[in-house]
Amino acid sequence: MKTEITQTDNTVTVSVCGRLDTVTSAEFEKTLAPHFATQGLELVLDCREMEYISSAGLRVVLTAHKNVTAKGGRFIIRNINKEVHSVFDMTGFSRILTIE
């Protein structure tokens, strides 16, 4: 799993490439965590190159959503593929999260 972060004004975009699973999700959380304290942040998770997500990755996504919205910000997920979307659907995450 690789991540790339780009920042413009108050928007941070984290692009994920590869798998978010038991092995990689702790590292992914470390990448996101520094942005949790920012007030009114728009945190975008670009999943164009995300191949796979499991419950371990979903937990980190949910943590990010809770932290960012608690600080008055927005957490947005973009460009998820069909399989990853199915996992968001079967867990009910697609009803809670903003998926564009």
Binding site: S54, S55, L58, V87, M90, G92
Partner: peptide, 11 residues
């Protein structure tokens, strides 16, 4: 109630 179990039920 575990997320993992929810996914297994879905799969």
């Amino acid at each position: 109630e575990e997320l993992s179990y929810t996914i297994l039920e879905g799969l």
